[in-house]
Design a protein around this nucleic acid. Structure first.
Lengths: 136, 136
DNA sequence: ATTAAGCTCATACTAAAGTACCGAAATGAC
DNA sequence: GTCATTTCGGTACTTTAGTATGAGCTTAAT
């Protein structure tokens, strides 16, 4: 990106030179205004990059402290919690089914119900929410 | 790189328009030079942020020091770690792509490479292993 | 200059995951 | 007995996820 910034600055300077050349016959007082504007633009361009770099290293995540009266608060059944633990362990639906001696279809049903109760769209999101709520 | 060229072209055109605007205001009213300069500053400030997000901290003089030890142990690149964090946040590949300004294809590539390095077969398993190894 | 590694993106495919809707049996509660 | 809930399982379908492969490009090292 260093090169990108440099090239862009060079382009802007080149544009400024063209302006100067074209406006040579006219009032020469305007050129200084353009120069100032260009410098300001570049400076703020760099400031934007600098500030953004510092803010990008942090991940924006708000810790939600919802009281955990445990499973029943979210209406999770015993089976659903078992499936949830399977998900968090990195198992596939099929593997969870084998572990619990259930069919994959049943696991899918449980997983779908789980997502509704946890307000999740993906199993990774369910893991995230379950950990936030200290269910697992 | 086509994208970069396009962005440059757009930037130059934008600057040109701003110059013309400044001249117009200067010729007619002249009272709004400060306003125009402010607008230019803000615009380029935002452009700086946007461009930097596109390439993140490629121009950082300090090569990743934070978690480098553990990251290097598993050979995870910076991008892969970012993708890994996206996965752990419960995002889909598409959402990770939007967050990092990358295509879904690229995310898939990163994810696949990630799985090889973490010895995982699913993203949930990758989350599990990454937490065990304290990568995230 | 050549190599190596990393990043990006694409296509084409297979495999899971997830949704929607359904039926049926077991368990308690009223 | 009736009702509600949970559990279990199915079919059919759409959507993501994941794999394999190839390519172009950038940057750093040799």
């Amino acid at each position: 990106m260093k090169k990108t910034v440099f090239v862009f600055a060079a382009l802007v300077i080149a544009l400024l030179c063209l302006f100067k050349l074209s406006k040579y016959a006219h009032a020469s007082g305007d050129a200084s205004v353009e120069l100032i504007i260009t410098v300001i633009a570049i400076v703020f361009f760099l400031i934007g990059i600098f500030l953004n770099k510092n803010s990008l290293s942090k991940d924006a995540s708000q810790p939600k402290n919802i009281d955990s009266k445990k499973i029943r608060e979210f209406g999770l059944s015993k089976r659903e919690l078992e499936v949830l633990n399977g998900i968090a362990s990195g198992l596939s639906n099929k593997e969870i089914g084998e572990k619990l001696f259930l069919s994959e279809s049943t696991i899918k049903t449980h997983v779908s119900n789980l997502f509704v109760k946890l307000d999740a769209k993906r199993r990774t999101q369910a893991i995230q929410k379950a950990k936030e709520m200290r269910l697992i």
